[in-house]
């Protein structure tokens, strides 16, 4: 099952109210994705914790195998 980029974006933005997420397909194969996320919740968190929030938001899609690898870039929204 290929990942649905719009769904992933919606999952991240739902988990982090006020966040802006862009999810793209880095390889064209649908399983190596890049999520660029800007969220107010990241303020004061270490990078690993920022990434944990993003990964947790889309955990279901890791668990069901839709995503194999997700690169994450985070930024604090102010």
């Amino acid at each position: 099952m290929a990942a649905d980029l719009a769904e992933l974006k919606a999952m991240i933005e739902a988990a982090l109210p006020g966040a802006e997420a862009e999810v793209s397909d880095e390889t064209g194969t649908g399983d190596h994705l890049l999520a660029v996320v800007r969220a107010p919740q990241f303020d004061g968190l270490s990078r690993i914790d920022q990434h944990r929030l993003v990964k947790a938001a889309v955990k279901e899609r890791f668990d069901d195998g839709a995503i194999h690898a997700l690169s994450v870039k985070t930024d604090v929204a102010r």
Binding site: R47, I48, H51, R52, F62, A69, S71, V72, K73
Partner: peptide, 24 residues
């Protein structure tokens, strides 16, 4: 609370995987 590899631990704490290590 991290499932993917690589993982870099510094002084007992997980710092991150490739993305975080490169950003840092």
């Amino acid at each position: 609370d991290w499932q993917t590899f690589p993982q870099l631990y510094v002084n007992g704490e997980l710092l991150g995987g490739a993305d975080i290590v490169e950003e840092m």
